[in-house]
């Protein structure tokens, strides 16, 4: 993989979904999060949701993968995510990212995950070691 990260470089957007209950259950098992909010419709209804919602860590993982698959996972130094809105079953998610700064061998990227209606569900910042030409 050869990737040059310069200020303004945009990651190729990655689109995932529509998110299914199966996707959420798969992450529950992989990530060890068995909060019933993410798989029990009655529990979710009592919490004020129309159906189970995805866990923030699932969104964080999908966001991270869209980045690391492009830059090489071994180059990621730091990742910070902010959970802005819940992800519901049926949502189609798009991850975008842009390099905002390069210096001292580290590129900083601004990341976002949006739904089909352009509403933001997650924002993030990542630091990646450069050059990323193994």
């Amino acid at each position: 993989m050869t990737t040059t990260l310069q200020v303004g470089t945009a990651l190729e957007p990655r689109t995932i979904g529509p998110i299914t209950q199966t996707d959420i259950v798969r992450f529950a098992g992989a990530g060890g999060d068995f909060n019933p909010l993410h798989h029990d419709p009655e529990f979710a209804a009592r919490a004020g949701f129309t159906a189970p919602i995805a866990m923030g860590q699932m969104q964080a993982g999908i966001l991270a993968a869209a980045l690391t698959d492009r830059v090489g996972v071994e180059h990621l130094r730091a990742l910070e995510v902010r959970f802005v809105a819940p992800v519901e079953i049926g949502d189609v998610l798009t991850v975008t990212g842009t390099v905002t700064e390069v210096g001292d061998g580290v590129a900083t990227l601004a990341l976002a995950m949006t739904k089909a209606d352009a509403a933001t569900v997650v924002t993030g910042t990542a630091s990646v070691g450069v050059p990323v030409t193994p």
Partner: peptide, 22 residues
């Protein structure tokens, strides 16, 4: 399992030989 659940496809998550080469 975790890589599959988040859609991460970097071979270093799954391929032991690739990881060792890295």
């Amino acid at each position: 399992e975790f890589a599959a659940a988040v859609g991460a496809t970097d071979p270093l998550h799954v391929d032991v030989e690739a990881a060792r080469r890295a």
